[in-house]
Amino acid sequence: MQYLIQLLISGLAIGAIYGLIAMGFAVIYKSTGLVNFAQGEMTMITAYIAWTISTTVSGNVFVVAAGAILAAVLLGLIIERLVMRPMLGEPVFATVMVTIGLAVILRSAINFIWDAYPHGLDIGMGRGIVHLGSIGVRTGQLAVIATLLLLLAAIWAFFRYSKVGVAMRAVAADDRTALLMGISATRVHALAWAASSVIAGIGGVFFALSYDLSPAMFQLGLKAFPATILGGLDAVLGSGIGGLLIGITENLAGGYLGSGMKEVAGFAMIIVVLMVRPFGIFGERDIERV
């Protein structure tokens, strides 16, 4: 039983990180209809910036958090303005290819700006181990689970009650009608890129805290993408939950079926789910009237 609980807790912790990055995918898809293949790289860049702040400015958790959020907002806005906005109206395939190109550039930037060595993000907390009975958990792992749950609630409230959230939903539903109603689609797109960058960046910072920073961190995007597909590409909250499911599934498969099964379990799960619900567990069925 203790073995199972340990697997579940570790699965929830890594799943929460996948969930945050998956929400980043979903926010952009929901607002722009685009799959951002540079999501993992954006996550990594924010984590590296957080590490730079911690080693050069201050290791205070609030300074690092504020700096990282600000940097993530700027990163999202810059990418939207310089790279994505010029692609408005272009075929989706071309736009997706641009995000793939962006991913390669951001990945290479790590070596040019920083280096290839792994680094530890030290902000004076998150690395300690707490024992729940005989089960050991890092405080950063507990914090990321709590953060995901808080963000899920906050984003639900944002989309439901805030004017900006309703505007984003309107643009997602029908951008032309939204435009006629006085909503600026470009502003909504910019906001979506900034929000996506921040949410995924939080996941990246928690990953760096619980594990380490390395140029291989971009691969988190590849792990989080199945979570988005599982939860529903257009379902922000569903993607977060999808991350938790993938994390738990991976860990249970690794713990009971063997190490080799760990990496394929999540993908096997989405194949099964998509056969039954092609739009994901929480995604909306796309109905076209002829």
Partner: peptide
């Protein structure tokens, strides 16, 4: 036996 690129080893070490 882990897959290249794996970053979380919680179940393996358990």
């Amino acid at each position: 036996n882990y897959k290249k690129g794996q970053q979380d080893f919680s179940s393996d070490m358990l």
